[in-house]
């Protein structure tokens, strides 16, 4: 009985905060747009009794999903989101791994401080930090001024409102999510394994690729998922740093919802996005599980 209760609590949580909202969104995605409050039809009316419910279901259809496939905007947005998320995940890994490695190799006494420094940016508002990047990256921004001053460039670079700015923003924002899981696996790594590798004839570099890298794989995979999954639906960074040319599905979603007030199409976009994300999430879960089994 107690066990049942223990299981029931997280399930109740999931049902109330994930499944119910998701089903509502699915329902809206199957509805039609209408100028009213709420801005779609049909709505379920229990007063009409059994026939009302039957009417309600007969009015639901897949029109909005068909519409998504007809307008190239949507699949282009999905594709470019996927591409941006993949590239920024790779970049975050390239930046994050060396940082995690350095942290794991630092003196024991320094590690909590370094950890603090990694988490520190979370103490200020995400929006403020993104705005700060606008100040840094704009044509008259700090970066250009600095580069002009040092004479590296003679013309200011256009970084803001390009994809590069989006990459910088995503890498910056999600870096801690990459560093922390990698650091966790690297910190657990037994130093004597590296010594054994060297003893058996490896150089330091070989020992890294043959021992450290494979043993930190679970951390790398976890980090990549933690960056990739939110990055693909990212909305704030592309709208603030990416300008109008950068197409991302999060932005499309927002515009459908608030500018066009087309809730059904927006919901359809969201459902498809979720389906795209379910695949990596399942893969992520499986990775976690395999890791747990390996540790036993």
């Amino acid at each position: 009985m107690r066990r049942l209760l223990l299981i029931a609590i997280p399930y109740a949580w999931l049902v109330a905060l994930f499944l119910v909202p998701f089903l509502i969104v699915v329902k809206i995605s199957l509805s039609d747009v209408q100028l009213s409050i709420p801005p779609y039809t049909p709505t379920l009316e229990f007063s009409a009794g059994w026939t009302g419910i039957r009417d309600f279901f007969s009015q639901l259809d897949f029109e909005n999903f068909v519409f998504l496939t007809e307008d190239s905007l949507y699949w282009k947005a999905y594709l470019s989101s996927l591409q941006i998320a993949l590239v920024s995940t790779a970049l975050t890994l390239m930046v994050g791994y060396p940082i995690a490695l350095a942290m794991a190799n630092a003196e024991q006494a320094w590690r909590p401080t370094l950890m603090m420094l990694v988490i520190l940016p979370f103490w200020t508002s995400f929006l403020i930090r993104v705005y700060a990047w606008m100040g840094i990256l704009s044509t008259e921004g700090f970066l250009n001024q600095f580069l002009l001053w040092t004479g590296v460039i003679s013309e200011p670079l256009t970084i803001l409102n390009t994809r590069v700015a989006v990459y910088i923003g995503i890498v910056y924002t999600y870096l801690p999510f990459m560093i922390l899981p990698i650091y966790a696996t690297l910190e657990k790594l037994d130093v004597s394994l590296l010594e054994a590798a060297e003893d058996l004839g490896c150089t330091r570099r070989q020992a890294f690729w043959l021992v450290t890298a494979p043993l930190s794989k679970p951390g790398v995979i976890a980090g990549c998922f933690l960056v990739f999954i939110p990055a693909i639906g990212e909305f704030v960074i592309p709208s603030l740093l990416g300008g109008s040319q950068t197409l991302m599905i999060g932005k499309v979603l927002w515009e459908e919802f608030f500018s066009n007030r087309d809730w059904p199409v927006a919901s359809a976009v969201a459902v498809v996005l979720l389906l795209i994300l379910v695949i990596p999430i399942i893969l992520f879960q499986r990775n976690e599980q395999r890791q747990r089994e390996a540790e036993q």
Partner: peptide
């Protein structure tokens, strides 16, 4: 002389087998 250049091999007290 670094460890990988020595004609010396060691069996570690903790074994240090590669888990992967």
């Amino acid at each position: 002389v670094p460890p990988n250049k020595r004609a010396v091999n060691m069996m570690f007290q903790s074994y240090a087998l590669f888990p992967h």
